[in-house]
């Protein structure tokens, strides 16, 4: 008799547990469905209000679809608000939710969409990095690197075997070029800032060549940046420059011209008939008072132009 009582109690307890779990699941799914419906009609902010507050409750913590829907809502909010920057909150939330959803598991359709959404978010970081390089301003390097870092981290999470060395190298080359263009701009800058920009340009080209030693553009641009820096120093010479200063400036310039020679020769070795490198070598040897070498490159240029 007492055994029977225990069985009935156990049965009732099991019923309570199962029904509570069922109700919780149905209710939980209800929030997800409501948020999905709101999302379908474009009410992403309302959808967020519905789902976000309950997402960390026990009913949702392990619900992959709920995190997937939340991630998608954050992604759409990121797009609609036009936020930008490596720390844009909606984008970061979208990535965190989608990554969690993938860890928890989803049906194949949701999983495919989640991957596409992460791909889109990853590219959005990349595009922002490109945009900042194109409209480059001094001091924005760290943010560009942060944006690229987020892109790279996301790409690697999607495909851990992906080789991003060339893209990293491209970014460094573009950063080098952006810095070099600042040096060539007319706007006046303090000499310490100019020095820092020049050093940064050289550093970025160096990074680009570490990632891709055969990058023609990085070799050529590095040589030009070094050479042009020397010319800028020379152009500061005027009637107030003493003989001693002239000798010092000349030493500094020749050092830069000599440093420029190696990358220019490396670029030339890759594309021996390219006029810009031939002209670069002709100019560099002339600046180094190496007339015979300069004349030899001049002759090559004339020969190429004569054959056209």
């Amino acid at each position: 008799m007492s055994a029977m009582k225990i069985d009935i109690r156990s049965f009732l307890l099991a019923c309570v547990v199962v029904s509570a779990s069922f109700c919780s699941s149905v209710w939980a799914q209800g929030e997800v469905d409501r948020a999905t419906e709101l999302g379908r009609s474009g009410n992403w902010a309302d959808a967020k209000q519905v789902l976000r507050p309950v997402l960390n409750t026990p009913a949702y913590q392990t619900n992959g679809r709920a995190w997937f829907v939340m991630g998608f809502i954050h992604k759409e909010l990121h797009k609609s608000t036009g936020e930008f920057g490596s720390d844009a909150p909606e984008r970061l939330e979208a990535i965190a939710c989608l990554q969690r959803a993938m860890q928890l598991g989803m049906n194949p359709t949701d999983r495919a969409v989640a991957i596409e959404a992460m791909d889109f978010l990853s590219r959005s970081y990349f595009r922002e990095a490109i945009g900042m390089v194109e409209g480059f301003t001094w001091g924005s390097t760290e943010e560009i690197k942060a944006l690229y870092g987020r892109y790279e981290a996301l790409e690697m999470s999607l495909n851990p075997t992906k080789d991003l060395a060339h893209q990293r190298s491209d970014l460094s080359r573009y950063l080098g070029q952006a810095h070099a263009m600042l040096l060539e701009s007319e706007s006046p800058r303090p000499s310490a800032e100019l020095k820092a920009i020049f050093e940064a340009a050289i550093g970025h080209y160096g990074d680009a060549l570490k990632g891709n030693p055969n990058d023609y553009a990085a070799q050529y641009n590095l040589a030009i940046t070094l050479y042009n820096e020397g010319v800028r120093k020379l152009k500061r010479i005027d009637h107030e420059t003493s003989m001693f200063e002239l000798m010092e400036i000349q030493d500094g310039c020749i050092d830069l011209f000599e440093r420029a020679l190696n990358p220019m020769q490396a670029a030339h070795a890759q594309q021996p008939n390219r006029l810009e490198t031939l002209k670069g070598l002709m100019t560099l040897h002339y600046a180094l008072s190496q007339k015979a070498e300069s004349d030899a490159y001049r002759a090559q240029i004339e020969q190429i132009l004569g054959n056209r």
Partner: peptide, 28 residues
């Protein structure tokens, strides 16, 4: 293709240096 690269400064570097030397030769 050149628009994707930095531009070579075509100033005559030797003449810039020589000009200052000549000024010193005149002045000293």
């Amino acid at each position: 293709q050149l628009t994707h690269t930095n531009t070579l400064d075509e100033s005559d570097t030797r003449s810039i240096t020589k000009a200052n030397f000549l000024f010193h030769f005149a002045a000293s």
